[in-house]
Design a protein around this nucleic acid. Sequence first.
DNA 1: AAAATAGCCTAAAATAATTAGGAATTCAAG
DNA 2: CTTGAATTCCTAATTATTTTAGGCTATTTT
Lengths: 158, 158
Amino acid sequence: MAQGLDEIDIKILNHLQKDGRSQRNKLAEIVHLSVPSVSERMRKLEEKDLIKGYTALLDSKKFKFDITAFVFVEVDGSDNYPIFIENAVAEPEILECHSITGDGSHILKIRTENTSSFEQLLSKIQSWDGVSKSRSNVVLSSFKETNELPIEKTIDPK
Amino acid sequence: MAQGLDEIDIKILNHLQKDGRSQRNKLAEIVHLSVPSVSERMRKLEEKDLIKGYTALLDSKKFKFDITAFVFVEVDGSDNYPIFIENAVAEPEILECHSITGDGSHILKIRTENTSSFEQLLSKIQSWDGVSKSRSNVVLSSFKETNELPIEKTIDPK
DNA sequence: AAAATAGCCTAAAATAATTAGGAATTCAAG
DNA sequence: CTTGAATTCCTAATTATTTTAGGCTATTTT
């Protein structure tokens, strides 16, 4: 995968990770290509689904989301996994849901308005089929929070 | 905070969370306003830093990032926190760094190419001042991974 | 070695965003 | 209440950006 990418693609992707609404003429300037060439490269990167999409990053504090937490859940019986996942995915306050190694079968990243809504969500989760235990770590402060991949690390510009 | 927002702002923000490169005329259509009005609202949302920025979401699998992990770190002596945080922030493979309640003082979200680069990063972290223990949960599969905030939950469209 | 493909360019056309100016509405103070 | 200021919206004109079209060159395939 991720084949056929050169240094120019990497630059484009890195800049789009930093500024998802960057204009093509800005990108063109950065990579020293014409605007149509940049457009064509972007089109291909999107077409290959190397770029999954674009998003606006909102300030959760300013939106009164006071609680961020990581919740470890033990779901008993892998028969129960699919319905658990379905439930988790449908819950807007659950931002992430991963199955993991180690204690607990799944980890959730959660954002809620306050302790009360957090408690409410927790007990809702507890009520789901197969959920036996859960352990929470509440975030006190965040020092880094990004999705930017250091793509140069894994790509050998062919 | 987050005051003075109405249903139209919420719609704009929600749509920009789903499509960060959405054109203003598309947004205008959705909220039934003219393009200049939408532009003005976006400008204000950005100015107030309710929107922190925009980013392209890349497919980590396609970029050969095989390992996602959550690492709990115990940093001894809060004197050591600032330098720990500085180190963590500077490490591109560490996507998130939070201080937390419960066991361990910090949780890290990490993405590396493979087990080898993961191990390498882990031992690097261990070598940092004050780091005494660490426990890792490696992600086997991810079912949801978003940053989209369910902003309607916390906003009272005055 | 010829043909096909891929990638780049410039220039023109199409589309999108910003600016300007004015009308309607809301809010606060008198 | 009512006037004035501020806000928010609109349309039309201008400016900026993006896409399209066509052609050139280099690289790869047959």
